[in-house]
């Protein structure tokens, strides 16, 4: 293009015009369904009423944020979110890595395929089905889990009737569902580990375990770091899907998290301003966490998302 720069420029201009036309629809979509709601965040600072509209409603400043961060009920909600988020993050982050290392060490092809097929599968089950399965199989009287526990002499457990079990059920059912799928990326990374390094380590007499620890793990560290950055925000942004389905009056004390609170206060009780403030608090904390972890890992390991 260097030779006939002017003609090239004209061509680029003509093409640009058409690119804008092609991408117009997705841009309008993103503007309407992502950016207009972002603008709607302003109702977190207003005493919003549908009748007066967003602009006409009275400005209340940080009243709702103050209320959210100080009232006893919402502080419990924030605490529940953090405990559940941290527990979930710490328990579910390492397991896919272990699983991938295991899969990578298997040399029997059919067995490897079988393990992968089974472990990836639950990811595609819907949350409603997952929670439904848990509730039926863990029923205190008729559930199979309690029948099996009975065989080894353990008295029936009321899994869904006691608040103390909620967090374990939430976290471990999540691991059951997603560990296999989350391991895919590590399996792929492990497949790319340099064969030369592996052979050199073998010639030096490294044992299998030593090769895993000193060749495989360091090689996939960048992948692990990227996943860490991706997942760190989940500590505060527990979604409402599964929690809401698992929630009942008996476990509400530990299962009420910010997202379910936002739904109940906003969509169910129509307290729009307060609900939006709570949601905004959550997204801001999640977004800042992402930025902080990204910056930290960039310094420590030179791997980052952006």
């Amino acid at each position: 293009m260097a030779g006939n720069a002017k003609q090239g420029n004209n061509k680029i201009k003509a093409a640009n015009w058409q690119f804008w036309l092609i991408i117009a629809l997705p841009m309008i979509y993103a503007f309407v369904f992502a950016y207009i709601p972002m603008g709607g965040i302003i109702i977190a600072f207003k005493d919003y009423s549908i009748r007066r509209g967003i602009m006409g409603s009275k400005w209340v400043g940080f009243k709702y944020f103050q209320q959210f961060l100080t009232s006893t009920s919402s502080v419990t909600v924030i605490k529940n979110t953090l405990i559940l988020g941290c527990y979930n993050f710490i328990a579910s982050f390492p397991i896919p890595i272990l699983l991938a290392i295991g899969i990578n060490e298997v040399r029997v092809v059919w067995y490897k395929k079988f393990v992968q097929m089974i472990t990836y599968m639950p990811y595609f089950i819907s949350i409603v089905v997952l929670v439904g399965m848990m509730m039926s199989m863990m029923d205190q009287r008729t559930g199979i889990i309690n029948t099996l526990l009975g065989l080894v002499g353990i008295a029936p457990i009321n899994f869904f009737g006691k608040a103390e079990y909620f967090r374990h059920l939430y976290v471990w059912s999540g691991i059951w569902q997603t560990a296999g799928y989350s391991s895919i990326i590590y399996v792929a990374a492990l497949a790319g580990v340099s064969q030369d390094l592996q052979e050199a380590a073998m010639i030096d007499g490294a044992s299998r375990l030593q090769r895993i620890l000193n060749v495989d793990l360091p090689s996939i560290l960048p992948t692990i770091v990227i996943q860490l950055i991706f997942n760190c925000a989940s500590v505060v942004s527990i979604g409402m899907d599964k929690v809401f389905l698992m929630q009942n009056d008996l476990n509400a004390g530990v299962s009420e998290v910010i997202s379910t609170f936002v739904y109940k206060v906003g969509v169910v009780n129509s307290n729009f301003g307060y609900s939006t403030a709570a949601g905004l608090f959550q997204s801001l904390v999640a977004f800042s966490l992402l930025l902080i972890v990204n910056k930290t890992t960039k310094k420590l390991t030179e791997t980052s998302l952006f």
Binding site: P26, M27, A30, P37, M38, I41, V267, L280
Partner: peptide, 22 residues
């Protein structure tokens, strides 16, 4: 710039209530 316009929506959103009102 247009990429950024889209990518930003992956990390930040208006939340449930503003979407519901929309």
């Amino acid at each position: 710039w247009v990429s950024l316009f889209f990518v930003f929506t992956m990390y930040f959103s208006g939340g449930m209530v503003p979407s519901y009102i929309l």
